[in-house]
């Protein structure tokens, strides 16, 4: 895929084809069938332990499904260095590298160490409003800033699909609110395909074009819900979104309670 230049209007679609996955015999995901069309953000929600993070690792090839396959169709965008790119919950920044060093890390292997790399770094730092912090070390940054560096790093490889694994869960409520606006801003300026795993329903109704609800372990796909409003028009406290969030919670409530009573180590 790498280096292929495709027309902008035909980016990559992902298809999850009957995915089943087990951990030492225990099924964690069962028969997941899902379409992720290009240019849209799919949120995956579900009670804790339903395998949503596992599903994301399967989508990006960090784990191999026991049955079924993840397929990608179409070409990656021009200049794409890493079609499926993650943003992790715990940021995963190298503490010994500065902000720009952390971004150049993912460019160096592609021979983009010099001027070309400089341009990319300057561009993604500007897009995430981090230009003033190039030389800062991760320990000097707040949680929200660290996650913005991780997002900048993901943007630097110009991904076809962004895989976001609870990216806001390690942050406090206010920072979360700010970063949601950032993500919406990034998407409206340049739409990307995203798979966004979260247990936070408010995030799901703010950021998802569609929301996939998983059942508790073994995770099955229960429902895929369309969110009606355009991403940039959604506000916190919008009654329509609140109602949708209520409906999602209704779907999940009993399962979440049951999941809470389960022994973790089976």
């Amino acid at each position: 895929m790498r280096g292929l230049s495709g027309p902008r209007d035909c980016p990559m679609d992902l298809t999850l084809d009957h995915i089943t996955h087990r951990y030492s015999g225990m099924p964690v995901l069962q028969d997941i069938d899902l379409q992720i069309p290009a240019g849209e953000i799919l949120c995956i929600v579900g009670p804790s332990g339903c395998g949503k993070s596992t599903l994301l690792r399967l989508i990006g090839g960090l784990e191999r499904p026991d049955e079924g396959a993840v397929r990608m169709a179409g070409a990656a965008p021009e200049g794409c260095l890493n079609p499926l790119t993650y943003v992790f919950q715990d940021f995963a920044l190298l503490p010994w590298r500065t902000v720009e060093g952390n971004i150049s890390l993912v460019l160096e292997d592609h021979g983009l160490g010099g001027r070309k790399g400089e341009e990319i770094i300057a561009d993604v730092l500007a897009r995430t409003r981090l230009s003033g912090f190039r030389k800062a070390l991760p320990r000097q940054l707040s949680g929200g800033m660290k996650q913005r560096v991780a997002i900048a790093r993901a943007l630097a490889v110009n991904p076809a699909v962004m895989l976001l694994d609870e990216p806001l869960s390690a942050l406090d409520a206010q920072t979360r609110e700010l970063l949601m606006d950032d993500l919406v801003g990034l998407w409206t300026r340049q739409p990307f395909t995203g798979v966004y795993v979260t247990h936070n329903l408010a995030e799901a109704v703010r950021l998802g074009h569609r929301i996939a609800v998983l059942s508790r372990r073994p995770g099955r796909l229960r429902e895929v819900i369309e969110v009606p409003r355009a991403l940039e028009d959604r506000r916190a406290g919008d009654p329509e979104l609140e109602a949708l969030q209520e409906r999602l919670w209704g779907l999940m409530r009993d399962e979440a309670m049951a999941a809470d009573q389960e022994l973790v180590d089976v």
């Binding site: 890493n82 499926l84 292997d109 490889v157």
Partner: peptide, 25 residues
Amino acid sequence: RTLIRMGQSFGLSWFSIVRKIVLPG
């Protein structure tokens, strides 16, 4: 391990992961 996983997810070569993530860590 999450840093190593991150390196893999960005398609870094094995040698890069060792030199830039494992050894400094």
